[in-house]
Design a protein around this nucleic acid. Structure first.
Length: 436
RNA sequence: UCCCCGGUAGCUCAAUGGUAGAGCACCCGGCUGUUAACCGGGUUGUUGUAGGUUCGAGCCCUACCCGGGGAGCCA
């Protein structure tokens, strides 16, 4: 007898197989049960006739509510009446645990209730699809960098100081001193790039910002490639190629999951290079002329950073991600290199996801001249002693280099077409949620 | 930190200041093709907490707690 998984059933039509899973839903009709069985790889309808399995097992299934653990053995049939097109004609089985009163029913639930039961909610179709796509995104990213000769070099999570100095950090006791949870692996990625040329970090990142929006988590995963001998153009090309590669990988391997989420696949199929590139100045002119916000509280102030509504306006003009580059240096981080053609600007880029989802990537060419970097650190009133090791990178063999940071959950949310990043991570951490 | 919204049965929600309700879930019975099954019957309440106003508060007032949406900041 073959033990298999639901996603492989098409290879077993006409055979007797055993499935190991849980009752996703059941409807009973006198002498038969329709058991929707899920096993993590998918969901399949199993038909249990009293005449085929015997009184005993039939009655056990009758008492097996949602999420009862159960194994079923039966004949795999192609069956157009069944959801998914396949069906198991059950011959025997075993109820490991009969469950009554599973808290998440097929009916509607509020988000608070679902978040409170996230450990169980993960079993439902929608989180299942999102998590499978999240995995495909991660695999796509790793394959992309691997194919391009990047080495994964993860940065520490305990850090001695702020890397950008501005964001709020989580402080934790570290023996006799205080440490901070990392808010970016970038400075370490720069050191790694000087050692291995092309590298990326892939790890959790922590921001103690008191943000309460659909785009924010206090703990999220970030991918940060960094390349020696790279310019801003190289950084933008890398971002464009990587996003296209990842979307193509998801389209190739996660069609069923996108269908569960009712994602408009045609919109994803348009995500191919080249992405539109706008300078900050060009984007500013669009915003200043935008009738949507002209004269309102949201009106754009030249020289300022873009707010979320501004990003949405720009992103909605295109059918693929937009790269906005050369922001004013004054509103960007100290390590970003000035534009030699306009020293008020820096060689930075933000990539705004399509369909108005906002920023998914922030990157730049880094300042590689020691003195200019020292000037910036002083100007920003950052503690110079904390950056001595970082400054060494400019003392010993400094080269032009750059990279970016990609927010994994924002990317997954964008590809899945879901509203809120909290659904793009298994156990979200937000300002008011630390459990489960 | 600021602005807005919410908290009533296990869940989703109703309820002019005047007896706290429905659907679903759950339990019992019926049904060999269900897709959120259907039909009949049944069980379910510290109205977030603490005060206050009132003859009378789920409803009005105050404070607090919890959550949701947004701003700022960011990925």
């Amino acid at each position: 007898m073959t033990v298999t998984t639901i996603e492989k059933l098409s290879q077993h039509v006409g055979q007797v197989v055993t499935l190991q899973g849980w009752v996703y839903d059941r409807t009973s009709k006198g002498k038969l049960h329709f058991v929707l069985l899920r096993d993590g790889s998918g969901i399949v309808q199993c038909v249990v006739f009293r005449g085929n399995v015997g009184e005993d097992f039939f009655n056990q299934v009758a008492g097996a509510g949602q999420e009862s653990s159960i194994t079923l053995t039966g004949l795999v049939k192609a069956e157009p009446r069944a959801p998914g097109g396949f069906e198991i004609d059950v011959q025997s089985g075993r109820v490991l645990q009969a469950v009554q009163g599973y808290p998440i029913t097929p009916k509607e639930h509020g988000i608070e209730y679902l978040m409170e039961h996230r450990h169980l909610w993960l079993r439902s179709k929608r989180p299942w699809a999102v998590m499978r796509i999240r995995h495909a995104v991660i695999m796509g990213i790793r394959n992309f960098f691997d194919e391009r000769g990047f080495t994964c070099m993860d940065a520490p999570i305990f850090t001695p100081n702020a890397c950008e100095g501005t964001s709020t950090l989580f402080e934790v006791p570290y023996f006799e001193q205080m440490a901070y949870l990392t808010q970016s692996g970038q400075l370490y990625a720069e050191a790694a790039a000087m050692a291995l040329g092309k590298v990326y970090t892939f790890g959790p990142t922590f921001r103690a910002e008191k943000s309460k929006t659909r785009r924010h988590l206090t703990e999220f995963w970030m991918i940060e490639p960094e390349m020696a001998y790279a310019t801003l153009d190289d950084v933008m090309s890398l971002a464009e190629d990587m996003l296209s590669y990842v979307v193509a990988h998801v389209l190739k391997t996660r069609r069923a999951e996108l269908a569960v989420l009712e994602r408009d696949v045609a919109k994803l199929e348009k995500i191919v290079p080249p992405f539109p590139r706008l300078t900050y100045e060009e984007a500013s002119r669009i915003l200043l002329d935008s009738p949507e916000i002209k004269g309102t509280d949201l009106a754009f102030q030249p020289g300022e950073d873009f707010g979320a509504p501004h990003e949405t306006i720009i992103s909605n003009l295109f059918d693929r991600p937009v790269m906005v580059h050369r922001y004013p240096a004054a509103i960007k981080a100290f390590y970003m290199k000035r534009d030699p053609l306009d020293p008020t600007k820096c060689l930075s880029v933000d990539v705004l996801g399509s369909e108005g989802v906002g920023e998914i990537i922030g990157g730049s060419q880094r300042e590689d001249e020691l003195q200019l970097l020292l000037d910036r650190i002083e100007h920003e009133k950052l503690p110079q002693e904390a950056f001595q090791w970082y400054l060494d990178l400019r003392r010993y063999g400094s080269v032009p280099h750059g990279g970016f940071g990609l927010g994994l959950e924002r990317t997954v949310a964008w590809i899945c077409g879901i509203e809120h990043v909290r659904e793009a991570i298994p156990f979200p951490r937000t300002i008011y949620r630390l459990t489960p």
